[in-house]
Every structure is written in C-alpha cells, then in structure tokens.
Design a protein around this nucleic acid. Structure first.
Lengths: 240, 240
DNA sequence: ATGGATATTGTATTTGCTATGATATGTATC
DNA sequence: GATACATATCATAGCAAATACAATATCCAT
C-alpha cells in the first residue's frame, strides 16, 4: 500500500471484492500480507482495500484501489454493503498490521465494500505480481484478515441477486469470445445446480444479444465448439 | 436528537428511510428541522438519522434511531447503501445546523442508509409528535437537508429490486388484515403501472401464504371485500 | 473405418402470464 | 320492491416461457 501520503481519513475505508471466472470456478483477487504477531512472522491474505483520502469520495477510492492493483480503468464497480461492526478490529494482529501500514492510530473502521466482475485473462498479466496479488478459487479461501471472509460471503449473495436483475454482468466474467459451455458452467457455479444442456442452448439462442460467431475452438480432441460474443448495444436496446 | 452524550464518531452516521403505505400512496417518515441561515430562520425536513456512537455498530445505530422515533423494536431494517460524496456537506446551512446539534466540528460525513417498511397504522399513534415527525407522501417531498432526496430515490430503487427477491416485505407495509384491493394498489404504486384485477386475484389465490379470512369489510357502499392475512410460516416453508 | 469425446439439435408436456367476459353482492335511488 | 351503480369474485381461452427427455453431428486419435 505505497502512496505519496495524501491525508487519510482513518475511520473509513473501502475494500474491493474482485471476482473472476476461470472456466470452471469463481476466483477472488486477494493480496498477500506479511505481518508480525508476538514476535512471530505470519503470512496470510486480505482483500485489496485502503483508507479513503480526505479529498476523495467512496466510489473514487474504490476505483483508485482497483486501478493501482490491476491497471484497469472504467471497470464496473458496485458498492454493495458497509461493514461497521465494532469487532471488525477485534484481532490485535490486524490492528498492529494496520497501524504500521498507515502510520497512525486506528480504532474502529467502517469499510464500504465494492464488488467488481472482471475477465481473468485481461487482469492476469498486469501488475498482479507487484502487488503480491493472487486469484484464489472461492472454495480455497482460507482465514483472511479482519472480517474479509464475511465480506466475500456477502458479495456472493449480492451477485446472485444482481445477475437476475442485470444478466449482462455475467459477460464481464467471460472472455470476449466464449463457448456455450463456459456460459453454462458459469450459471451452474453461480446457482449451485446443474442445468440441462439442451434447454440452456435454446435459451441462449433466444438471447439476441448473444451472437454466434463464425469462429470455432482449435486443437481440441473432440468436436470443436462455436464461439459466441456478447453485444452490449443490442442488450441495452432490448432490456431498457 | 437529544441523548445523554455518549461519545459520537463524527465521521459516520446512519439515516433511516422509513416507508409506509396509506392504502393509496407510499409515504416516508420525515423530521421537521428548524435552523438559522444568515440570520433568517428556516424550516425544512430531513430523514431520521444520527451520528453513530463509539461503542455502537451500524445496525445498532439504525435500530436506536428508529426506536427513539417510533418506539418500534424488532423492525426489519435493511442497510441498502452508503453515501460518501464529498459535497454531501456542501450546503453551509446543513453544516451550521449539524455543528450546533452535535456541538462538534464536522467535515465530510459518510452516512450508511437503512430502509424499513412499516405499517403506518401502528406507527401513527406513537411518539411521532414528540419528534416532530411526519408521514409525507412520496410525491410531496420537498427539498430536504443534505443529500436526503438522493437517499430516498435510491431507497425506492432498492425496494423495487428487493420485492422481487423477497415479496414478503410487501406485507410489512399492509395492515394485518388487508383487502385484495389494498395489495393490488400497493403493487401498482411500486411498479408504476396498472394491473388487471382478475388476473391479480388469480395470482394471490395461488399464493398459499395469503390466507382468505372469514371477515369482510363493514359499512362500504358496495359489495364488501374479503379480508386476507399473510402467513409468514407458510411463506418461509414454500420459499426457502 | 472405428471408437471416444463433446457439441448441437427436436419434440412433447407442463406451467405461467395475459386478455377478456360473465356473475355475485353490497348500497343508494326511484 | 325494482333498478341502477359500484366493486368483488369467478371462469375460460390463447400464447409464451420453462421443463423433461433422446438422438445425431463432428472432431481427433488409433
């Protein structure tokens, strides 16, 4: 968390739950943290986040964090919940780490949590290493700093609701060219249940904003699947 | 905003959008505010809200505000969005009022907004007068303090989404005994469009958690409508 | 040419939503 | 008491969307 020391408001932070999809599972972007607890060095992980600066609004702070981390601009960032329980900073481990990082006394911090759905393939080759960041499969996430496990749980609940309201966000998770299988597995992972292949195919055929391309998979040892793409303009016309 | 001066965190507040339904329109609970601006006394309105105390978490603070105001306990309070724009406190009128009320210097305040759907009939005869509170029809809400108009707008967007996900919240707005007409008008007001009477009737007949009672309207100058009631137990069984 | 693997397609059934017509029951009026 | 009027309640048909279920097509490797 290096920056040129703008004045920080040490009561309010933002945390970003950045979610990606690798074709099989959902992954969340986490940052490695090295700290010290009663003389022992420990390693664990946390969500990307930061105290907000005095001259910065919430959305701006979230954008900044995400940008510093992935280099992305213009990513769809959704505020989904504030976390302000008093025992967020219950663990002395977390408090000591934070006070060293921020060089200031901290008490209870309210954090505003943001959710972002991104394409792993684009993010993968950016500054991730510089930031000690890693795409961790959701079911392999261990104990995180602060209440970040809780924040991720709430983020997942939020996604499931949000998808129904705005299905286009699914395509933020997929590559620009994707197969019907990828899209189906994404649905299955999100809803936690199997979907009939044939009915699903019929369904995406009726979505006029999912465009079949003339391109097919290469070098697979079975019948090659067609690629599809998502057309945002058509989507906006038909939905709004 | 009288209280016995627990230590307040003057960076974070909660505001409650308390919504009721009078049978025709939605109403929101607002508090009268009297302030002074360049020598002139002004009257306007604001959402019920408060800075949070140091030993209080967000949900707790929202509960406290709502309880002080209406006497309610165990009301369903939903956090729906945080507002942290820097120009929330752009208007000097608001800043001066707040600094007098809180007896402390304030800068930017991030507020966590909560939504609550309640029965007007229960709330009506409580402490509303003591708190200078009033049920204002949504379409008659004037310019409010801070960004409270924006907060109400966002609250309404949130309700529309939330209803689809959890229709049971509609019954929080209705009296325990209600007619099919009341329920239908509530839908119409929320979605802003007319619903066919006959199809709507069929629809609520298929909801096994809407129970027809043996009681009918009294003293109306037309065929008396049947009363219905909402059964939460049955609802929870069928939905979850 | 054959087998293994995955992709793609068709048909019948059920269920839900929409549109519209007809009947029932209360009060007020003549 | 007969009639008009207003609202509540019940009924039916058509269309569209969701579900259940099985066969065929295409690519690669041998």
């Amino acid at each position: 968390m290096e920056h040129k020391m703008p004045l920080a408001n040490n009561h309010i932070s933002v945390d970003c739950v950045v979610v990606g999809f690798d074709g099989e599972r959902l992954r969340v972007l986490l940052i490695r943290r090295i700290g010290e607890d009663s003389g022992e060095v420990f390693h664990d992980m946390k969500l990307p986040g930061s105290l907000i600066y005095m001259d910065e609004d919430l959305d701006g702070a979230a954008m900044r964090v995400l940008n510093e981390l992935t280099g992305f601009k213009n990513v769809n960032l959704m505020q989904f919940k504030a976390f302000g329980s008093r025992d967020r900073t219950k663990n002395p481990k977390d408090v000591r780490w934070l006070e060293r990082a921020e060089k200031a006394k901290v008490e209870r911090i309210v954090t505003i949590a943001y959710l972002s759905l991104v394409k792993i393939d684009r993010a993968l080759n950016k500054n991730l290493d510089n930031f000690q960041a890693e795409w961790v499969p959701l079911d392999e996430v261990k104990d995180l700093a602060f209440d970040h496990n809780l924040i991720i749980e709430e983020a997942m609940k939020y996604i499931r609701q949000y998808v129904e309201f705005n299905p286009s966000c699914l395509f933020d998770l997929l590559p620009r060219k994707f197969t019907a299988l990828q899209l189906r597995v994404l649905y299955e992972v999100l809803y936690g249940k199997q979907i009939d292949v044939r009915n699903f195919h019929k369904k995406i055929m009726m979505m006029d904003y999912v465009i079949p391309m003339d391109e097919f998979q290469q070098g697979v040892s079975h019948r090659a699947a067609r690629y599809y793409r998502f057309d945002k303009k058509i989507y906006n016309k038909t939905r709004r």
